[in-house]
Design a protein around this nucleic acid. Structure first.
Lengths: 155, 155
DNA sequence: CTCATTGCAAATAATTTGCATGTAA
DNA sequence: TTACATGCAAATTATTTGCAATGAG
């Protein structure tokens, strides 16, 4: 996935600020994992990310990837997401505020959608309940058009 | 939670139809678990449900509860939900289509909301992508008004 | 130097499964 | 009587943690 460098710099700064504040250290593994995450497809699982990381350095352990992604989630750079397949997936925090997901219950494909009017209504709901909105998940589950097609032609 | 008997009868029939079709049997445990689920609070976890079931029959195993709830999800009577606390929770399928959730990230309280205009837009999105909509999750995460209050008064 | 970080393996936690026994139809 | 269902314990899966060794600041 190609991202704008400026967008990534924002997240690099956010992470750096958090690490400085907490006295955390910048190691080779951490840098590698973070940059790999920044350039990976959206909704990567730990497993997928680990594979990509190991392509550069086979000695990285999976616990380190778990720990690093947890760090990214903590400091607001990444969001954890769970779409019914039992795996935790991660996406850049910024992306999350601008799109939601259609998830196929048959082939597990994930399609993103944007609907500003839903976001507006969402904010209205939050206001009505005196709720300070931080983030949201909006997932539509169903059968994607290509699986419907497969079904009609007898799989 | 008090429900309308008619609403529950609909689900009993749905389950029965599914069981007949598949040649599944109606056992005491299954009946007990299903009825306990029907009368439990919304968003019960397996653990909570098992405790309530065991109040009536202490010999029920947890595997049976897992299997039964999976059956309910399969036949469209219940929906599985995961709200970031690591537990799978279940709710009556019908309820799920009519409300969504505000989740407090501080006290973990869950508030339900309804917004038909969001549902309409959701269907519109699904149609646009040729998606056959089955269910959805819409969760707003943030700080509830009572936690905001606590925060202002210094916890 | 000091203390955070790493990699490994072992520990957890939630859920699933194998199997002998029980039981609905 | 025939398989489906149950309860238990063991297996699986994803994730977390303890710890000795490593390395950043």
């Amino acid at each position: 996935m190609d991202r704008q460098p400026a967008e990534l710099d924002h997240f690099r700064a956010l992470l750096q600020g958090y690490m400085d504040k907490k006295g955390l250290r910048s190691t080779d593994q951490r840098k590698l994992i973070v940059e790999t995450f920044f350039h990976a497809d959206n909704h990567v699982s730990i497993e997928e990310l680990l594979a990509q990381v190991r392509a550069h350095d086979p000695r990285v352990g999976y616990a380190t990837v778990y720990r690093t992604l947890k760090l990214l989630a903590e400091c607001g750079v990444a969001n954890e997401r769970r779409f019914g397949d039992g795996l935790t997936r991660y996406e850049l925090a910024d992306d999350a505020t601008h799109h939601d997901h259609l998830i196929c219950v048959e082939c597990h494909s994930i399609t993103e959608f944007e609907e500003p009017r839903i976001e507006e209504l969402q904010e209205k709901v939050a206001r009505k309940y005196g709720f300070e909105l931080r983030s949201h998940k909006h997932e539509l589950y169903g059968v994607c058009s290509s699986c419907q097609k497969k079904r009609r032609t007898g799989n």
